[in-house]
């Protein structure tokens, strides 16, 4: 290795940046629709029947392999997106030591990702 490579170590930011970008794109394309459906239309029964939020219906969705992938992608990527943005903003605000901020943002996103995988496996197929 020559000098410049040693003095100029590669940042690992691309990992977090790509997860942030993927979450940003998925939420930009489908976020408003998802919030509208699960948070407003379904709970108020507007255009969507009561059975949409039934335990059996939700369980069937979470047991379907494609449903599992959708849940994992949406939950994990949304957390990674928020984590990147919150970390950078808290860093801008000098809200605390970098390690604490990273644990509170990327750390939470990593924990939620692992927990989601665990829950989706526990729910079964």
């Amino acid at each position: 290795m020559s000098g410049p490579a040693r003095d100029n170590p590669r940042s690992i930011s691309p990992i977090f940046w790509l997860l942030f970008g993927a979450g940003g794109m998925v939420s930009a394309l489908f976020g408003p629709a998802l919030i509208l459906i699960t948070g407003l239309l379904a709970p108020t029964g507007t255009g969507i029947p009561e059975s949409f939020l039934s335990y059996d219906h939700a369980l069937a969705f979470a047991r379907n392999p494609i449903g599992k992938l959708v849940l994992l992608a949406v939950i994990a990527l949304f957390f990674w997106h928020g984590a990147e943005r919150l970390f950078l903003t808290l860093k801008d605000m000098k809200a605390g030591p970098s390690l604490v901020l990273k644990l509170g943002t990327y750390g939470v996103a990593a924990a939620v990702t692992l927990a989601t995988i665990g829950l989706l496996l526990a729910i079964g197929f």
Binding site: T38, G39, I75, G82, R85, L86, T116
Partner: peptide
């Protein structure tokens, strides 16, 4: 963008 993660949290609580 943090709102995106908060909504992710709502879904996670549901799971």
């Amino acid at each position: 963008g943090v709102a995106v993660a908060i909504y992710g949290g709502v879904l996670f609580a549901g799971l």
